[in-house]
Design a protein around this nucleic acid. Structure first.
Lengths: 204, 204
DNA sequence: ACCCGGGCAGGACAAATGTCACTGGCGGAA
DNA sequence: TTCCGCCAGTGACATTTGTCCTGCCCGGGT
C-alpha cells in the first residue's frame, strides 16, 4: 500500500481511544496519525497531521466535536469528518450533517463497521444508519430558541432561578418565562423533564 | 501456552466490547471465552464458560455488574472479578469491594493497563487506583437509607411528588419527608442537586 | 425495661416554581 | 409599511416543593 488512509482520532475515554487506535492500525490500509482527548485540540492536530478522515466523538471536554467539525470544513475541507458517538440522538445527527459530516456512527454497532465506514467515507459516500436518519427526520429540528437552550443548560444541574439568572445575565422573570416556554415546547411538566427530553433529542 | 487465561467480558457498548475482545485476544496468554452485553446474562454465561477472570462493566442493562459480581462470588468463587467502569465513583469502588471484586479499573487509563490488571488479579493481587481508594475512604459510606435511595431514584427523571408516591407505594407526605431528608444529608438545596451528588458519589 | 433509628403519615407554613397577561425593542420577511 | 418571532422584563397568581413538628409502629441493642 503506497499510501495508507490517514486518520485523526478524537475520543476522551482513554481505553476506548487506545483500543480503537490499535485496532485501526491493524488494518493495513489505515494509519492513525493523530490522537486527541479534547475537543479544542482537534483543529490544531488536524492542521498539523493533515488526515484524510477525522473520527470525532461529540461529547468531548473543551469543545464539542460538532463544533470542531464545522471549523474543520472551513480550514481543511479535504478532510472528511466521521462522527462516532455514544448516543444516536436525532438532533446530533441533524447537527452533524449541518456541520458537514460525511458519516455518523453510534458506538453500539460492531467494530467491523468502523474500518468499513472509514473506507466508504473516503470514497465519497455518506455513512448513516437508516433507522437513525428516519428518527431525525420525524423528530424535526429543535423548537428551542438559543436563549431557551442557554437557560435549560444552566438549569440542568439543579440550579435555582436566581442561579440561572446570574449565570446567563438575565432577570429572574425572564428566566422563568424562558423556562416556562421550554417546558411548553417539550410537552413536559417541569424543568427537569424539559432538560431530559431536550437532551434525549439532542437539542442541547 | 498450554492454558491461556480465560476471560468473560461484560460490556454493553458494542464497539467497546468488540475492541476490547479483539485486543485481549491479541495477547497470547489471554482468551476471551464469553462476551455478554447485559447484566442478567453474566452469571449464566460464567457458569457455562467457567472463566478465570470476569471483566464487568457496572452500568449494564438488565442488572448491575456489581450485583452480578456478588452472585458470582457465591456460585463461582474461583472466578476473580475485575470491574471496568466509566465512572470512578467512590461508592462504586466501595460496593465493588463489598461484592468481592478483586480489582477496579476506570475506562480512562491506557489500554495497556487492562491485560496487566488481568494477570495481576489472577495472581491473587488486588488492582485499585490509589487515588480512587483514598477518595472512597474519605467520602465515607452512603448516608442514605434504602427508602431515601428509592425515592431519589424515582425522582431522578423529573417526576412530581405524586408520581414518586405512586411508583414507590408511599403517601405523598412520606415521599416529601424522605426527599427532604436526602436533601439534608447530601447538603444540597433541592431534589435535583441531591440526585446529582448522590449519583456522583455512587450512592444510587 | 428502656432508648433509638428507621419507616410511615398528616398538617401547617414559607419559599420556589410554573403560568399568564401585558409591555416594549429589535430585525427580518412579506 | 406591517406583521411576526425572538428577546427582555414586570406583576399577579396558583401550584409545587421543601421544612418542620407531631404522632405512631417496629425491631435491635443495652
Amino acid at each position: 500500500m503506497s499510501s495508507a488512509i490517514k486518520v485523526l482520532l478524537a475520543e476522551d475515554q482513554g481505553m476506548m481511544r487506545g483500543a480503537l487506535s490499535l485496532l485501526l492500525n491493524l488494518e493495513d490500509d489505515i494509519e492513525v496519525v493523530a490522537q486527541v482527548a479534547a475537543g479544542d485540540e482537534i483543529v490544531a492536530a488536524a492542521l498539523a497531521a493533515r488526515p484524510d478522515v477525522a473520527l470525532l466523538d461529540i461529547e468531548l471536554p473543551g469543545r464539542s466535536g460538532l463544533d470542531a467539525a464545522a471549523e474543520l470544513r472551513e480550514r481543511l475541507p479535504e478532510c472528511k469528518v466521521l462522527i462516532l458517538t455514544t448516543f444516536g440522538r436525532p438532533g446530533y445527527l441533524r447537527r452533524a450533517m449541518e456541520a458537514g459530516a460525511r458519516g455518523f456512527l453510534v458506538k453500539d454497532g460492531p467494530v467491523e463497521d468502523l474500518a468499513a465506514a472509514i473506507r466508504r467515507v473516503l470514497d465519497g459516500h455518506r455513512v448513516i444508519d437508516p433507522a437513525l436518519a428516519a428518527a431525525a427526520l420525524s423528530t424535526g429540528p429543535s423548537p428551542l430558541t438559543p436563549r431557551e437552550q442557554d437557560v435549560l443548560n444552566a438549569a440542568a444541574d439543579g440550579a435555582t432561578v436566581a442561579d440561572i439568572a446570574a449565570r446567563v445575565h438575565l432577570s429572574e422573570s425572564t428566566v422563568r418565562n424562558h423556562l416556562s416556554s421550554a417546558i411548553g415546547k417539550t410537552g413536559t411538566r417541569n424543568r427537569t423533564e424539559a432538560v431530559r427530553t431536550a437532551r434525549h433529542n439532542g437539542w442541547l
